[in-house]
């Protein structure tokens, strides 16, 4: 299903590119088309965050900073609980953060929720990026390409989870910063840093289909502990990171989102306006005809030379 949909998109996109190049340089056929995104693998990654198992040690924050070369400080300093007083968002110096929420069932054991890029199945940022600097990889991760990005920050406007962040203090080479699922570590056969360090099995890493099954089992086995909702299973068409919790997700500051994919309407409009370049070309032909007809009407009632092409310098000759 995903594969079929994907092929349609590729065809349409390729056509768009070919047609655009053709129109620009009048050399149809010499189009160089960017290698199309690969279809998502059935073995793509899934990660489950069990918010009832997280103890808020914030070791994942430290590991993430260390793995991405960001100023991390001492691991011991992360046991300071005062940071929980204010709600924090992932930023350009912390790609993941943990926040504390009240637990009505047991006030002594607050709920902790880790936030980072969700790695959407159909990411808005990838659809939005003007130069295609963001890629949805076969393995499910969404990664950013330093060599392409122009720093327009449209990905930040598009993302429903407000994840991509920007290095505002830099005038040269500012980066878009977000979780990349530790693509460098994984290429060396290692797990993402946060998952490796998590001491409490709050993070479950595996194939998305397996992880989803595990999540459903957990909810089935402990219906008193969990609410029957896997956040990320269907939200914006599904995400790589998924959450289970003991209370409603809007109480954990997770945006209430529908199941429609984020770029759905936008892409439909975009491809509607440009459907195989038919509308623009039709408009061009229509206006050309109109121009010719009105000119013909004018010349057949005046002494202007006939058959002359209309031009902006008309007024000069008079």
């Amino acid at each position: 299903m995903i594969y079929i949909e994907h092929m349609n998109n590729i065809d349409r996109r390729n056509f768009l590119k070919t047609a655009a190049i053709g129109a620009a340089s009048l050399t149809l056929g010499s189009a160089t088309v960017k290698a199309a995104d690969k279809p998502l693998s059935d073995d793509r990654i899934g990660i489950l965050v069990d918010t009832t198992a997280c103890v808020g040690c914030r070791h994942c924050e430290w590991a993430c900073r260390t793995a991405h070369g960001l100023p991390a400080g001492e691991l011991e300093s992360y046991s300071d609980n005062s940071v929980f007083k204010e709600y924090r968002r992932p930023g350009n110096e912390a790609l993941t953060v943990v926040n504390e929420f009240e637990n009505e069932k047991n006030p002594l054991l607050p709920v902790f929720v880790k936030s980072q890029c969700m790695h959407c199945e159909k990411p808005a940022c990838v659809s939005a990026c003007i130069v295609g600097a963001l890629t949805k990889n076969e393995d499910g991760s969404v990664t950013w390409n330093d060599d392409k990005c122009i720093g327009c920050r449209y990905c930040m406007v598009a993302c429903q989870f407000q994840i991509p962040t920007y290095e505002w203090q830099k005038s040269i080479d500012p980066h878009i910063m977000k979780c990349d699922l530790c693509s460098e570590r994984r290429s060396n056969g290692k797990l993402p840093a946060c998952i490796e360090i998590c001491p409490n099995e709050a993070l479950l890493f595996g194939k998305r289909s397996d992880v989803l099954k595990a999540a459903k089992n957990k909810i089935k086995r402990k219906p008193d502990t969990y609410i029957n909702h896997i956040y990320g299973e269907h939200e914006v068409g599904g995400t790589t990171w998924m959450y289970i919790a003991g209370k409603k997700f809007d109480k954990l500051k997770m945006p209430p989102l529908g199941t429609a994919t984020a770029p759905g309407i936008s892409e439909a409009i975009q491809h509607g306006i440009f459907a195989y370049f038919v509308p623009p070309v039709t408009l061009f032909a229509l206006l050309g005809t109109m121009m010719w007809v009105t000119k013909w009407k004018k010349t057949n009632g005046s002494d202007e030379p006939k058959g002359k092409l209309p031009d902006v310098n008309d007024e000069k000759e008079k």
Partner: peptide, 21 residues
């Protein structure tokens, strides 16, 4: 745009899905 020196990128790096493109 943050990387003003890359303003020419959209000329050769295309994303037909992007309204901004």
């Amino acid at each position: 745009i943050g990387r003003f020196y890359y303003i020419w990128h959209p000329l050769i790096m295309w994303n037909g899905n992007s309204a901004l493109f």
